[in-house]
Design a protein around this nucleic acid. Sequence first.
DNA 1: TATTGTTATACTCTATAACTATA
DNA 2: TATAGTTATAGAGTATAACAATA
Lengths: 160, 160
Amino acid sequence: MSTRKPPPDATPAGRLREGALHAVLGYQLAQASVVTNAVFDEQVAGVHDLRKVEYTTLALIEQNEGLTAAQLASALAFTAPNMAAWIDRMVKRGLIEREPHARDRRALHIRLTDAGRTLVQRATAAICQAEADALAGMSPAERMMLTELLRKVAASRRAR
Amino acid sequence: MSTRKPPPDATPAGRLREGALHAVLGYQLAQASVVTNAVFDEQVAGVHDLRKVEYTTLALIEQNEGLTAAQLASALAFTAPNMAAWIDRMVKRGLIEREPHARDRRALHIRLTDAGRTLVQRATAAICQAEADALAGMSPAERMMLTELLRKVAASRRAR
DNA sequence: TATTGTTATACTCTATAACTATA
DNA sequence: TATAGTTATAGAGTATAACAATA
């Protein structure tokens, strides 16, 4: 149970005034991310030794079997060399596999191994549970609204 | 003008299915941050040579004159050594100053110089304008709602 | 004993350049 | 020429440990 209510225009963190920062979306996103990052680090990174990039990669492949490295890099806003390195690490760990592309001999499809699929499913369950716990103060309707608004922001990303 | 409407359950980035990831707040925050980070890099980092940490530090000091390094580190979820390094860099650049604390001789108040104040005000104006441009597809009401929901998420951060 | 600020240092992550194979 | 994937490498950013000064 919370003890004191913070002043109206204060950062949740240090009870500081935000001023113009209140309207800066990038700042509010960063502050909110502190919470989700902590949840991730405790429930996934710490438990399953999975970085955020790695988890997201596995989750995207799970839903889009056969993605290429270029597609993943684009989706995650990562550079190609970094994406390759992360993929390589997960291949060596036995979580994903590279398979030849049907029509383009340069490209490689990436698929989950059984171990990878099991891991990503466990991680997703852990995250959803932990986020729900951490955000118990928000109603399901508020969380849904937040998700849709965030998707609207993300949708304005310039294609590359 | 948008050409095609993306499929219902697709990432804005690569037109990929999200699946369970749709409900993972950390993922949606990261995707939305791609947009605001790009805005920041182009309009602030690139123009005024200011990192996100630096800008936020200046903006918080502007509204909370005399903050200490410990308070800033807490507000930004930074470690003390890193906060000290960022502060040091901005002091050397003439954007902020350290002043002795009235009652605690260990601590130091941090204040903006005139140059720092001018810079942070210009940066804030640039960000607000650029974010508004980038998010032209969202109504003011939607943006306000988003801000409040994000603050609600951030408010659930565990105190430290 | 705990806290503030700092230095030193190692590690993680990211970006750039350059290369190959293929389109 | 452009693209997919990769290697090599440098730089940015972050964390940990340890310290002096003060509370």
